[in-house]
Nucleic acid binder design. Structure first.
Lengths: 147, 147
DNA sequence: TCTTGACCTCGACTTAGCTTGAGGTTGTAC
DNA sequence: GTACAACCTCAAGCTAAGTCGAGGTCAAGA
């Protein structure tokens, strides 16, 4: 028991804080690829702790499982990820965070305008034309808010 | 047609950019409370444009329908919300945004530490102890990441 | 008056991200 | 060598936030 080379699903759950069922679900989605014991039980690499921890972080940032899978796809399943691997992914994640912060700051700025102007009723309000909802359905004003 | 006092669901959909089915769904969730025409059709107040626009904004901030409902619960259904109403809610929303930005900045700072240190493998890494996952299940280290 | 688009209800379906349960097997500790 | 916790598969269920379709009604213009 001293030189454990692999982890059972229960041990992995304890180490990551995930439930056993969630880990099985992540396997199904391709986020981890355990091998099997002679009796058919899952056996995980210690590096899978890192992989799943990464999943948890990425989820906090709002990435979907599919997006996370794409990030992780760049890591080999068979070997322990190197520092370079993680650095590359971490930098990609940082861009995601920066973008989300920037978007929230834009929203905050618009909201500040509203607080001062009795907004949510004014045609000039920018909050109702956030980047992705503008002009989706042909011409003419939509989402304008003038009472 | 010039002095319309109420809106049909279709008109409200056109004004907010929402689908008719989404508006019915929001009614079911208590976000709007239309009255009915003699024939049983929904009739909305013009102030419901504001209510639903607010819902759209709040959703962009990541609030659930339940959370939005709680914010809106402070507004009377029967009368047009005043500027003071909206200012109060807008200020509450600003706090939500600020909190979310602050949380993302903390995550970014931790990630920056990781990029430099070959992290995701070091015991000292803070990313694996994000605020809400610590010590949830009794004593002993969890979510530590040391390989 | 009649047509037709907009409206009605209700139930089923969707995607994401899991959990829960039934019924059966493995592996480890005594 | 046996008990029993931990594991297995597979199917069904759950929440959120809606969409879609069937079958039927309302309302406004020609």
């Amino acid at each position: 028991m001293t030189e454990t080379k692999s982890l059972t699903i229960g041990a992995l759950a304890a180490r990551t804080g995930l439930s056993v069922s969630a880990i099985r679900f992540y396997e199904e989605k391709g986020l981890v690829e355990p091998f099997r014991s002679s009796g058919g039980q899952r056996r995980f690499l210690r590096s899978d702790i890192r992989r799943l921890s990464f999943v948890l972080i990425a989820q906090q940032l709002g990435l979907t499982i599919g997006e996370i899978e794409r990030q992780l796809a760049s890591l080999p399943h068979g070997r322990t990820p190197t520092q370079a691997d993680w650095t590359r992914i971490s930098k990609a994640m940082r861009k995601v965070i920066d973008a989300r912060i920037a978007q929230l700051e834009r929203t905050r700025d618009r909201l500040d305008g509203c607080i001062g102007c009795g907004c949510l009723s004014l045609k000039k309000c920018q909050l109702y034309n956030p980047e992705d909802r503008v002009g989706l359905k042909g011409p003419g004003p939509r989402l304008v808010l003038e009472d």
